[in-house]
Lab assay of single mutants.
Amino acid sequence: KKTCTFCKKEIWNTKDSVVAQTGSGGSFHEFCTSVCLSLYEAQQQ
């Protein structure tokens, strides 16, 4: 099972999830929504 990098909820429907390359290492992270992605990126600043 996949979990959201930001909120840690399980991702049930992968077509609704967002995968983004974030951080200095350029690793890929999966998020349940684009909202979680935005919040995660804001936290990394």
Rank of each mutant, 00 (worst) to 15 (best):
V35Q: 12
C32L: 00
H29D: 15
E30W: 05
V35E: 14
E30G: 10
V18D: 12
V35R: 11
F6Y: 02
K2L: 10
C32P: 01
A42M: 05
V18G: 11
L37I: 03
S34Q: 13
S34I: 02
C7Y: 00
V18T: 15
C7L: 00
S38K: 12
F28A: 15
T3L: 06
L37K: 10
E10V: 09
E30Q: 07
S27C: 12
K2C: 03
C7G: 01
H29I: 08
Q43H: 12
G23E: 10
D16V: 04
C32N: 01
C4A: 00
T5M: 10
V35W: 02
C7I: 00
E41I: 01
L37Y: 08
T22D: 15
H29S: 12
Q44Y: 04
T3W: 02
S27G: 12
A42C: 05
A42K: 14
F31L: 04
H29F: 06
L39Q: 15
A20G: 12
V35H: 07
L39P: 04
G25T: 08
W12K: 05
S24F: 03
S34C: 02
T33R: 07
T3C: 03
K1V: 06
T22L: 07
K1C: 06
Q43Y: 02
T22Y: 04
A20W: 08
H29T: 12
C32Y: 00
F28Q: 15
A20E: 14
S34V: 07
T3S: 07
L39E: 15
V35G: 10
S24I: 07
K8A: 05
E30I: 11
Q21L: 06
C7M: 00
T3M: 07
C32E: 01
D16K: 03
A42D: 08
C36D: 02
K1W: 02
K8L: 10
S27M: 09
W12V: 07
H29W: 08
S24M: 08
L39N: 14
Q44W: 06
V35T: 10
E10T: 07
V18E: 14
T22C: 10
K8N: 10
S34W: 02
G23F: 05
G25S: 09
S34A: 13
W12C: 00
N13S: 13
Q44H: 11
V19T: 14
K2A: 09
G25E: 13
T3Y: 14
Q21M: 06
E30P: 11
Q44C: 08
E41L: 01
F6R: 11
F6Q: 15
L37F: 07
